[in-house]
Amino acid sequence: MSFPTQRELVTALAVLIFAIAADGVAYVFDKPFLANSIYLALMYALAGLAWNILAGFTGLVSFGHAVFFGLGAYATMIAMLHKIPAVLGILLAGGVGFLAAVLLAPIWLRLKSHWFTLATIATAEILKLSFIVWPAVGGASGLQAPIAEPGEELYYLYFRGAYLYVFIAAVLVAIEVVVLWSILRGPIGYKLQAIREDEDAAMALAIDPLKYKFFALAISGFFTGLAGSLYTIRYRFIDPFTVFDLISVSTYIALVGIVGGIYTFLGPIIGSFIVVPAAEYVRSTLMSIASRYAALHGVVLGAVLLIVSLMAPEGVVERVRAKMVVWSKVVKVVREWVVERS
């Protein structure tokens, strides 16, 4: 039931093409807000898909993916500050995310269920605190990207507005979709899901849980690191409070997966395109009418998470699919009835 289908692959790529088209429309009609929302949705989709290979397919629920996101963001920033081209900086972010996952695996993977979750939260907090007191990475005041001189725009990926950045993000998500889709359909997808369902039973079938969890974690770290680099190249300024944040990073990444549905491949993408633009819209309107928009934002986020986990724990994608099954049955019955009549 939860193996990625052909249709999901097509849908995912269609969403990406649609995102690029919408970005074009935003450019023509000069709608920077729309383009920015699309960009953020792609960034969270990138991280959400990576998160879900752990949560949905392996059963390891992280609320600390800010670890990889933040390290990725810093990796790209530091690369740019060393005059390394931003494209290499993005790759480096993936590498750092991967490395962090490999190094954390011996600790995290000893833990199960909520202990794993708690350890991820604690690790992100430890990293945040360490970066705050570490002068070499700018400490609490953060880092600012170098100003691109005229002619260096491509070198440092420095563009006006979100329009061109959307292309970069869409390409990264497309690569991720294809890679994860083919992995999860193959033997690894079966073994990961077996581990998620019952680790003891999986072991009896000659599956080494540690090996496959390690693999899932490393891939997850890699793509989440990439998502962090997307933050850096677009916003040009980072500090530990922002990129290691429990709410706007770790929770958001989990949220897009949970809203979309963790037992579907497509879930995080759909979830991201529902949650992020809506949240951005709410945030921008709140900012102009309420002085405490940040708190209100947190409350709204909590309400959404609570409603989804109580009313639609299977996520939006499964919901829609179930509805479609019902509808196609209704259509069939009606059609048969009509045929009978004529």
Binding site: M1, S2, F3, R185, G186, P187, Y190, K191, Q193, A194, E197, D198, D200, A201, A202, A204, L205, A206, I207, Y263
Partner: peptide, 26 residues
């Protein structure tokens, strides 16, 4: 200890994958 959320066939495919490389063979 069934893998509750997988189908019966998928359950057994997981086991068969220990002796087969591809999902099709399994």
């Amino acid at each position: 200890k069934p893998f509750a959320n997988l189908t019966v066939e998928e359950n057994v495919v997981v086991a068969a994958l220990s002796r087969n490389r591809s999902v099709e063979e399994a």
